[in-house]
């Protein structure tokens, strides 16, 4: 197998990023609930405790606020912290250190002290886990000045964006989705960075621009393949970073296609799809041939019962239907 065609699981790609960054830089450390337990973090932390010891791979009691704050304080004091929240819902306990403290620290102190930290949150949708184990809360964090928010959809990006997030001198929220962890893709063995704030075109097309991110990229690509059978050529953009947004990439595509669809795994109101649609409206209104469409979660909490769950989560079909509707108008 050649070096550059090696395939790796998404979760092991992140794991490799930790091994390489912790091996290269003694100031990098991992802290959070369950970092030594595959039950919490799957195989993302495999081998780290054995290699780097409990001082740099710190399993903690359930104290999200204090633990996240400690990770922030350590980052202010010369470390590069990675703090994991194995279920993003529990990260809500830590919004004070994330939003009030880390996001504001550099600005409100006039650039005197930056906070090089990665807030790593894992979304755990589905599985009849109901409303407090499955929320996709990325847009809450994308709203906050001073935070960068990345959401890799491929193993390649999982590694490259984690490395970029760790190397960044600012607070970066890194959000992945448990459903992505077992996916496989090509991951180079060397240390490499995926630039924060840059999206990628995953499929080219001239009829519709479809913007998506993280897990729902899978549905977006399936939808584009299906629509191609009907001669609707969809250009699929993987945002990869939701803050700062790669506006140029989206605008350039919309100017070519004249149509915008956004698929997001979060809620509709005030969500990522609303933000993308708004800036396209502001900056490329004259290019639009049709109203934009948004495929998102409905504005309600996640139900437990699978009978309701299957209605709740957007599917490939929902995206196909939405795009077909806008093209045939």
């Amino acid at each position: 197998m050649s070096l550059n065609n090696r395939k790796l699981q998404y979760s092991l790609a992140a794991n490799e990023a930790f091994h390489q960054m912790m091996g290269e830089d003694e100031s990098v450390f991992l802290i959070g609930q369950g970092v030594k337990s595959p039950w919490y973090v799957g195989n993302t932390a495999r081998g780290l405790l054995e290699r780097f010891g409990p001082d740099r791979v710190i399993d903690t009691p359930v104290s999200e606020n204090a633990v996240t704050g400690a990770a922030v304080g350590a980052a202010m004091s010369g470390m590069r912290s990675v703090v994991v929240h194995p279920r993003m819902d529990f990260m809500m306990y830590a919004l004070d250190p994330i939003i009030n403290q880390a996001a504001n620290w550099y600005y409100m102190n006039g650039g005197k002290l930056s906070v090089p930290i990665v807030f790593w949150g894992i979304i755990n949708r589905g599985g009849e886990q109901a409303a407090q184990h499955s929320q996709a809360l990325h847009t809450i964090l994308g709203h906050i000045p001073g935070l960068k928010v990345v959401m890799p959809s491929t193993p390649y990006d999982a590694k490259g964006l984690m490395i970029s997030a760790i190397k960044d001198d600012n607070p970066v929220v890194y959000i992945d989705d448990r459903w992505l962890h077992s996916t496989e893709g090509v991951v180079p063995e060397e240390i490499y960075e995926v630039p924060i704030g840059k999206g990628a075109i995953r499929r080219e097309g001239n009829d519709v621009t479809l913007v998506a991110v993280s897990f729902i990229m899978r549905h977006a690509l399936e939808a584009a393949a299906e629509l191609a059978q009907e001669n609707i050529e969809v250009e699929v953009i993987d945002l990869r970073t939701i803050k700062p947004l790669d506006k140029d990439l989206v605008l350039e595509s919309v100017k070519k296609t004249g149509r915008l669809a956004v698929a997001d795994s979060g809620w509709k109101t005030y969500g990522l799809a609303a933000e993308i649609s708004a800036f396209v409206f502001e900056e490329a209104f004259d290019s639009l041939k049709a109203p934009f469409v948004r495929v998102t979660l409905p504005d309600l909490p996640a139900p437990a019962s699978s009978a309701l769950e299957k209605l709740y989560y957007p599917t490939t079909k929902d995206i196909v239907r939405a795009i077909r509707g806008m093209v045939n108008k």
Binding site: I58, V67, G69, A71, V72, G73, A74, M76, S77, Q101
Partner: peptide, 14 residues
Amino acid sequence: GTISLAVGAALASH
């Protein structure tokens, strides 16, 4: 709000 930050500085020192 800064108590945990101070704990973090102590953690860095540790």
